[in-house]
Design a binder for these strands. Structure first.
Lengths: 346, 346
DNA sequence: TTGTAGGCGTTATCAC
DNA sequence: GTGATAACGCCTACAA
């Protein structure tokens, strides 16, 4: 044993010896097994605390075959939405003593595959991950793992297991419909390049469908930057808006960050929002409400996704519950927040 | 074994049997041990992939005494700073095959203690956590754990082990000094209530010291909301600014979020920024650069903290390196971004 | 280059 | 109530 593995040298054996009992009694005492006399239990716990003994959960898990982990993958933490979702998910999950094993895919399917594999090595009891398309191998690994798989955010056509999310396409459709109702006709959609595997694509499709349903052209597509779009990206687009199309009367952005950037650039250029050009975003970031003018946006509640997913996991992992009757699909509500960056119905 | 532990039923034994070799050969083949003939190795790897075998790292770790985990605690993911830091830390750490075990303390020492304990059960090889004060028990557990402990963000007076961060107090001192130089005298400091255990307190102290050093009064202290302060909190304060003190000529906020809120509220009320009232923040959030006017702020690079901490961990865990000559303290640079929300030197 | 024996720290199971 | 024994799935150490 010449490795650096020092771990905590205090082992259950040490505690047992100090207490003059067997390891099993210590094990039972720590788990409030009930079948330990109050006396010995108290004595053991006192020693445990004195020795600062911290049980090795890896060893325990190996024995019980329960890792106590729930894996969660997100594209990035650098996005308020995912950060909030993870926060909510974690908070809910942890009430049951399970721990979250987190990874971020950086919006890449290849990295996701790699991450799924390294995560699976920890034998999580369930895994929740965003649906943005998976490689075949990822899907195989997931199926093979024999644990509940929960796909988040969007609703895939062929779910692997469970699904918690909303339809980005539908949400985007609704917003576009609304913008048209507000009198805008030459609406441009702002999104990332290479969004094929992100929710961006779904939002783009929703926009397109709504425009075409209204007999309008959806050709004003402004693609810039890589996911996730930043305020800066939006600012750049806003500055050069007429270079893209010179007849835009409204800009619908794939998220609130670029929407805020566009708005700022338009303000700087003296373009009147919402009378000259309307601006709409997606996500209801806090900044949108306090922008001037406040930004019309699609309201989603990422925390709700996290919470619902967490509760589902908890139910699925509860032996006492009947898993078979759990619905496979959970729909999270969205709504539109029409604010000052778009004009009122004429 | 009548437990629900389903885990992945495929075990190394199964692969070995399928390949007609012993478990050890499989083990070696998978780790590119070198001492396996190319032939058998290829054959085994093919079978591994066909069976979708994923090794159980827990079992491996129990044996090697290397968990492969690096624990990271943050107050909240709901804060761009920490989210960015975690992202950077994770990216760097993962290049070495180590995995991040993440927890969030919700700005509570009690929760931190609990979290440290549950985290330590996983036998991380190192732990990085924010310094915002720890309970005695937390400190004991950390010392007992026999692993590198890295305190982040601020520089504690009595570090447990290593330290990566900047002095919030000093940064705040510098900004206050600058604001005074710009001609502001009646500067108010905006921070949370109950910030005693957050970096907020250090920033407050820096403000106070700078004011007093310049012979000015630091009594204009506006405390509102709980950490972390939001745009909304700032907006509320901005709306009622003269209710707090009626002679404020500059508002220095504990972070950019409330600064943006204050700015918006002042804009709404027709108060001129920066001529009537200056506004400054802390953190250089993206929104500050694109606010109108752009917000003067203290520039810190959270990603840099994550990166430096990660690299330190990597060096410390590298057997081949001599740990003893690692410095204990790593200072991250900060700088001031003087923008349009504060007036120019008279 | 491959295999055998034994152990990592914990818990399930069955005796006492 | 408590203890002895045998796993859990992998790896180290040593042998062949």
């Amino acid at each position: 044993m010449s490795q650096r593995g020092k771990s905590n040298p205090v082992t259950m054996e040490d505690v047992a010896r100090a207490a003059g009992v067997s390891r099993m009694t210590v094990s039972r005492a720590m788990r409030a097994d009930g079948s330990v006399s109050q006396n010995t239990r108290d004595r053991i716990l006192k020693i445990v605390s004195k020795m600062n003994y911290v049980p090795d959960q890896m060893a325990g898990s190996l024995s019980t075959k329960r890792s106590g982990f729930v894996a969660t993958l997100v594209p990035s933490l650098n996005n308020v939405h995912y950060a909030k979702m993870v926060q909510a998910l974690t908070e809910t999950i942890e009430t049951t003593g399970l721990q979250i094993l987190l990874g971020h895919t950086d919006y890449s399917m290849a990295r996701e595959e790699q991450l799924v594999e390294s995560t699976l090595k920890r034998r999580p009891e369930a895994i929740a991950l965003p649906f943005d398309g998976h490689t075949d191998r990822t899907i195989n690994l997931l199926k093979q793992a024999q644990i509940p798989v929960i796909e988040l955010w969007d609703t895939p056509a062929k779910p692997i297991g469970y699904t918690v999310g909303f339809s980005n396409e539908h949400a985007s459709f609704l917003m576009t419909e609304k913008l048209i109702e507000l009198g805008y006709k030459n609406i441009a959609f702002v999104c990332e390049t290479n969004d094929e595997w992100t929710r961006g694509a779904a939002r783009r499709t929703g926009f397109k469908n709504a425009m075409e349903a209204a007999g309008l052209s959806a050709h004003r597509m402004i693609r810039f930057g890589t996911p996730p779009m930043s305020i800066k990206d939006g600012h750049h687009i806003g500055q050069n808006l007429d270079q893209y199309y010179d007849d835009i009367d409204c800009v619908f952005c794939v998220s609130d960050s670029p929407a805020f950037g566009v708005l700022t650039a338009l303000n700087e250029k003296g373009v009147k929002v919402p009378s000259d050009v309307g601006v709409a975003g997606f996500g209801n970031f806090e900044v949108s409400r306090y922008a001037m003018p406040s930004i019309t946006t699609v309201k989603v509640d990422p925390a709700e996704v996290g919470r619902v997913a967490a509760e589902l996991v908890i139910r699925l992992l509860d032996d006492k519950q009947d898993q078979s009757k759990e619905p496979k699909k959970y729909q999270i509500d969205i709504s539109l927040s029409i604010r000052d960056s778009t004009r009122l119905v004429k």
